Simulated assay, not measured.
Amino acid sequence: MPKDQQTDYLSAVSAPIELARGLPNAHYTDPATIAEENAAVLEATWAALSVGAEVPEPGDCKPLEFLGQPLLLLRDGDGQLRVFQNICRHRGMILVSEPRKIEGAIRCPYHSWCYAKDGRLVSTPHVGGPGQNSHPAMDRATLGLVEVRSHIWRDVVFINLSGDAPPFEEVHETLLTRWKEVEKPIFHGGPESSFMLEVETNWKLAVENYCESYHLPWVHPGLNSYSRLEDHYHIEEPGKFSGQGTYVYRQLKGEEEEVFPDFEGLSSFWDEGAEYVAVYPNLLLGAQRDHCYAIVLEPVAHDRTREHVHLYYAQPDTPEAMRHKNAALWKGVFIEDVVVVEGMQKGRAAPGFDGGRFSPAMDGPTHLFHAWVAERLAAHREGRDAD
Score class of each variant (00 low, 15 high):
Leu285Met: 15
Ala350Trp: 11
Gly59His: 11
Arg376Cys: 08
Leu71Ser: 06
Lys240His: 10
Leu329Asn: 02
Arg250Gln: 14
Ile106Asn: 08
Pro281Leu: 09
Arg304Met: 12
Asn133Ser: 07
Ala15Ser: 13
His126Tyr: 10
Ala137Val: 06
His135Gly: 00
Gln69Ile: 15
Gln315Lys: 15
Asp271Gly: 00
Leu229Tyr: 14
Asn160Lys: 02
Met1Trp: 00
Leu377Arg: 14
Ala378Ser: 13
Leu95Gln: 09
Val182Ser: 01
Cys108Thr: 06
Pro261Gly: 04
Ser268Leu: 09
Pro238Val: 09
Leu175Glu: 13
Gly254Ile: 06
Asp387Phe: 15
Gly119Gln: 05
Asn133Tyr: 05
His324Phe: 03
Val338Ile: 14
Glu173Ile: 00
Glu342Val: 01
Glu342Asn: 00
Gly265Thr: 10
Ala116Cys: 02
Val309Asn: 12
Gly222Asp: 13
Pro360Ala: 12
Pro217Met: 07
Val157Ile: 15
Glu272Arg: 13
His27Pro: 01
Ser227Glu: 14
Glu37Met: 15
Ala374Tyr: 07
Val340Tyr: 03
Trp330Asp: 01
Tyr233Glu: 12
Leu95Asp: 12
Lys253Thr: 15
Leu283Asn: 08
Arg154Tyr: 11
Met344Lys: 12
Thr33Cys: 11
Leu64Arg: 15
His291Met: 10
Arg357Asp: 10
Gln69Val: 13
Ala301Met: 04
Val182His: 04
Glu18Asn: 03
Glu147Tyr: 05
Ser268Pro: 01
Glu275Thr: 08
Val122Ser: 10
Val277Arg: 02
Ala48Tyr: 08
Glu170Lys: 14
Gly190Tyr: 07
Ala274Met: 12
Leu42Tyr: 14
Gly286Val: 04
Gly128Arg: 09
Tyr9Thr: 03
Ala321Met: 08
Gly163Ser: 06
Val338Phe: 02
Asp8Arg: 14
Ala287Leu: 09
Ala26Gln: 14
Gly119Trp: 00
Glu342Trp: 03
Ser112Thr: 05
Lys180Ser: 15
Gly77Glu: 14
His232Asn: 15
Arg357Lys: 13
Gly352Met: 08
Glu342Phe: 01
Asp8Gln: 14
Pro365Val: 03
Phe195Ala: 01
Tyr247Gln: 11
Ala35Ile: 01
Leu42Asp: 05
Leu205Ser: 03
Val296Leu: 11
Leu311Ser: 01
His220Phe: 08
His291Trp: 15
Lys325Val: 03
Val373Pro: 01
Ala141Asp: 14
Thr174Asn: 12
Ser193Arg: 07
Arg304Gln: 12
Gly265Lys: 10
Arg357Phe: 10
Leu23Asp: 04
Ser97Lys: 15
Tyr115His: 06
Arg384Ile: 15
Thr318Asp: 03
Leu329Val: 02
Ala12Asp: 13
Thr142Trp: 00
Leu67Ser: 06
Gly347Cys: 08
Ser123Leu: 10
Ala53Gln: 09
Glu173Cys: 01
Met322Asn: 02
Arg21Gln: 13
Ile159Tyr: 10
